[in-house]
Amino acid sequence: MASADPFDSALDLLRRLNPKDTAANVQRLCSLAPSLTEDLLESVDVPLTIKRDTKTGRDFLCCDYNRDGDSWRSPWSNEFFPAIDDGEGVVPSERVRKMEVKAGEAFDVYRELYFEGGISSVYFWDVDDGFAGCVLLKKSASPSSKSAASWDSIHVFEALDRARTARYKLTSTVILNLGTDAENLGNMDLSGNMVRQVEQDLPVENDGSHVTNIGKMVEDMEGKMRNLLQEVYFGKAKDVVGDLRSIASLSEAKRDKATHQEMINSMSRS
């Protein structure tokens, strides 16, 4: 019998553990099996972490797509923090960097309109026959000392240039964490993630068209995933609570039962 692949076993283990603890569990697995570190960091989506760009004074989000070793590139200054000793690190070409800056400004407005706070970061990089990138959005809230919530969305895309069009491949992941430990409600933990993919061919006139197309695709995908999460998390919870405990009063329940019995009796007499 062939032995199980360590990487597949690690992924299988992560799927069985609480999604809320994914980041900590990935670090534990990396400590236990250092040879899997790069593969795990590239393959497993975890809640986004925040770092400060000391040159511009702005926060930015960290993921595997702006990481170079133990340093992360800021989209605001295009520099790595902490600084890389052996050079500038991997940065996009001048053309792709210009699109990255425009997209970053656009999604900063998008973040303020839809999230009313939080942090956004956009990273682009060069690939054969086009470019690729990711759009990161994070919003955390703590209504009280015993409750907290966070939304992390990671949109990774590839844009392949063609004659007057571009082929876009978008993979979107939303990580949602909701938790409370209030005395009147008890302990509640709703954590999970959702992944969706889409491909589209869209017209392109210039580099600005890429930013517009990507923005529309991300906006549409986020709206769909938000509605699905609302249905999965809150709709299902409402159904479960409804099955456990009716909200109707005792008098209404008796009246409905009597009406039901009367209908059965009338049907049996006919």
Rank of each mutant, 00 (worst) to 15 (best):
A2M: 12
F7V: 07
A10Q: 00
L17H: 06
N25S: 07
V26H: 02
L29C: 01
S31L: 10
S35D: 14
E38F: 07
D39N: 12
L40K: 02
K51L: 07
K51P: 00
D53C: 04
D59K: 14
D64T: 12
R67G: 03
P75L: 05
D85V: 10
V90I: 11
P92W: 02
R97C: 04
A106N: 10
F107N: 02
V109E: 14
R111E: 04
S120D: 06
S121G: 07
W125M: 01
D126T: 07
A132C: 13
V135A: 13
L136I: 04
S140Y: 13
P143Y: 01
K146H: 08
D152H: 15
I154S: 05
F157I: 11
R162W: 08
A166F: 02
A166K: 00
S172R: 08
T173C: 09
T173D: 11
A182G: 08
G186Q: 04
M188R: 10
D189T: 07
S191T: 06
G192S: 05
G192W: 04
M194Y: 10
Q200M: 13
L202H: 06
P203L: 01
V204W: 00
E205K: 06
E205M: 09
E205R: 04
G208K: 12
M221Y: 02
K224N: 08
L229M: 12
Q230I: 09
E231Y: 07
E231I: 04
Y233Q: 02
Y233P: 01
A237H: 10
K238D: 10
D239S: 15
V241G: 02
G242H: 10
S249M: 03
K257D: 05
A258D: 10
A258T: 09
N265E: 14
M267K: 08
S268H: 09
